[in-house]
Design a protein around this nucleic acid. Structure first.
Length: 278
DNA sequence: CGGCGGTCCTGTCAGC
DNA sequence: TGCTGACAGGACCGCC
């Protein structure tokens, strides 16, 4: 269940458990996830100390003392759980274990196997093919209404699809695209290139608000999620439109609609997001 | 070249 | 209860 706020919270939860620890041993239970595991994965990691944990988009970056970086993505169903002691048996869909110096173990678990684990280096980080063409972080300063307005120029694709495109902005998945467009009062089907500057201002503000709120909600949930093996967070209780097809809009009472865009479900309020605001 | 659909997997749930 | 099909929070690839 990794959206950007959850990945960020996973990183925050992992930091006190992992930074300063040495990786003693790596165990792999299959040769690949979305990409093949590097053949030298264990060889590179074993014996190295973890010096920092960062995030870029939905990628978790575990920085090691000798310039190497363990790069992980949780895909749709991935989880990272740190167990304080070595377990006797692994859970279904545990694909990789990282045994730490203090006897704890980090398990990478992913039922659907859309996640990935690979290696890069801090030196080459920004040139890595998975990272090199990513757009700005939505919570950082480079993500402005001016930027969004300019990058949307000439785009005929629906604004909702454009928001989910990592080249434009990272970390906005299906849920947050829907929720942000509702908060901004913009219909998901509106062509990205037709957004006015005021709409871009509202949209950037809405994306920030929604992500920050989710970060707060995910924060307190995922703390023990990482340390133990908790289940879903509780941000879903704050959804305004996502998953609410046929239910009343909290703002106006109109029934929430669902359409399909680029193969994904989009939820919106036909009244509050009718494109007449500007 | 931009945009869309297909695809990688397994799990869950609604409906019959 | 058991089967079937739709659908799922991501992101790449290839085709038009």
């Amino acid at each position: 269940m990794p959206e950007l706020p959850e990945v960020e919270t996973v990183c925050r939860g992992l930091r006190p458990l992992l930074v300063g620890q040495r990786i003693n041993q790596v165990e792999l239970f299959r040769p690949n996830l979305r990409l093949p595991f590097p053949l030298n994965l264990a060889e590179v990691l074993e014996g190295q100390q973890i010096v920092a944990i960062n995030r870029r988009a939905k990628y978790i970056l575990i920085l090691l003392e000798r310039d190497d970086v363990l790069l992980m993505h949780l895909g749709m169903s991935g989880k990272v759980v740190v167990y304080p002691l070595r377990r006797n048996q692994r859970l279904p869909h545990d694909h990789a274990l990282f045994i730490l110096e203090n006897g704890s173990e980090m398990a990478f678990n992913d039922a659907r196997r859309f996640g990935l684990i690979t290696l890069t280096t801090q030196t080459l980080l920004h040139q890595h093919p998975l990272l090199s063409s990513l757009g700005p972080e939505p919570l950082e300063e480079a993500f402005t209404a001016d930027y969004l307005h300019s990058i949307f120029q000439g785009k005929t694709s629906p604004v909702k699809t454009a928001l989910m495109d990592n080249h434009n902005v990272v970390g906005v998945g299906n849920i947050y695209a829907c929720e942000s467009l509702f908060v901004a009062g913009i219909a998901p089907g509106k062509p990205a290139g037709s957004l006015t500057k005021p709409e871009c201002i509202r949209l950037v503000t809405a994306i920030r608000e929604v992500l920050e709120a989710a970060l707060i909600a995910g924060g307190s949930t995922l703390k023990d999620y990482v340390q133990a093996k908790g289940e879903a967070g509780y941000f879903q209780h704050q959804f305004q439109v996502y998953g609410r097809e046929g239910e009343a809009c909290y703002r106006c009472g109109t029934l929430i609609a669902r359409i399909r865009q680029a193969g994904r479900s989009s939820f919106y309020c036909p009244h509050c997001q009718n494109n007449t605001r500007s």
